[in-house]
């Protein structure tokens, strides 16, 4: 026994409605909750953007000896509080705005051009496409062939910059094994945040697709480069979890900064372990 459903309405003749294709009125026939994942991604990323913008412009409550917020590290301006300038103050006094406004260019550039985050924001913010086999709303599409999206190709340079920042943040984690008087051999709850943050950032950076390419992916003859092949194999294993590390490190940075904000603003007192 059969019955038929006529197409409900005409369409614009593009995409899945292009001439010659099966005439089906629905833009998608998916019946699962395909919109949930891009919605969650949108909410989380937008929350991070709002939070980081607020903290970057705040220019306050980012240092409480021995903890320096990752949003403000390395703090290189004269305006940085005493004790936070472990790498000097060679930017000097001419720079009067928040140090985070310069610093965040690099880690945000790394994440904006990251192959995983590209998938995340193309789907959730630009809906290009919102989900697989769900028609996107745009009439024209040029992908990453034109300005500004062709700049995604500089991802490797942001990766190199991220390595430098990872070294700095690793130092910050080591430096957090001090007490508020600057004496070594102490630790508090903030130390755990900073060590966890640095660890997650290293995992995120080393699992990067550009890292995988640089250490050996560009080679044709692995057998001629056994050491680089070994590196490539290790990075490839990390690379399968790049999405996981991308999210964990994002949360890690945000929570570390928020913890230091709470301590620096006096809202809480940092519990000391030893």
């Amino acid at each position: 026994m059969s019955t038929t459903e006529k197409p409900a309405a005409s369409n614009d003749g593009t995409g899945v409605f292009s001439p010659g294709r099966a005439r089906i009125s629905a833009k998608t026939l998916r019946v699962d909750n395909w919109w949930v994942q891009p919605t969650i991604t949108f909410i989380i990323l937008l929350s991070f953007v709002i939070y980081s913008t607020w903290r970057a412009f705040a220019n306050a409550d980012y240092f409480s000896m021995p903890y320096l917020s990752p949003f403000y590290s390395p703090c290189l301006a004269d305006s940085c509080p005493p004790g936070s300038q472990d790498f000097g103050s060679w930017i000097g006094s001419w720079y009067a705005w928040s140090p985070a406004l310069i610093i965040l260019i690099f880690p945000l550039g790394f994440r904006m051009t990251c192959y995983y985050y590209r998938k995340a924001y193309y789907r959730s913010f630009w809906m290009s496409p919102p989900a697989c086999a769900v028609a996107e709303p745009h009439k024209k599409y040029s992908g990453e062939t034109k300005f500004p999206l062709i700049l995604e190709n500089v991802h490797r340079y942001f990766f190199y910059a991220a390595l430098v920042f990872n070294v700095v943040l690793t130092w910050d984690a080591i430096a957090s094994f001090r007490n508020p008087q600057g004496e070594w051999g102490h630790a508090g709850l903030g130390t755990l945040f900073l060590v966890g943050n640095a660890t997650l950032l290293w995992l995120y950076s080393l699992s990067c697709h550009s890292c995988r390419h640089a250490v050996g992916g560009r080679l044709k003859h692995f057998s001629n480069h056994p050491v680089r092949y070994k590196w490539w194999t290790m990075v490839s294993k990390l690379n399968t979890r790049h999405m996981l590390f991308a999210w964990l490190s994002l949360f890690g940075v945000a929570f570390t900064d928020f913890y230091i904000y709470l301590v620096a603003s006096g809202a809480i007192t940092d519990p000391r372990f030893f």
Binding site: Y115, R118, K119, Y122, R123, S128, P129, C132, A133, Y141, S142, G143, E144, T145, L149, I150, N153, R156, H209, S210, R212, H213, G217, R218, N239, T240
Partner: peptide
């Protein structure tokens, strides 16, 4: 360059080839 690596190709591959991670992104690099 038109590919914006949204990974749908990988999601539907019945042979579970990691099309995006192992082919398209390395080629983009």
């Amino acid at each position: 360059g038109l590919c914006n690596i949204t990974k749908c190709c990988t999601e539907v591959c019945p042979e579970h080839i990691k099309i995006t991670d192992n082919a398209i992104i390395p080629m983009k690099e």
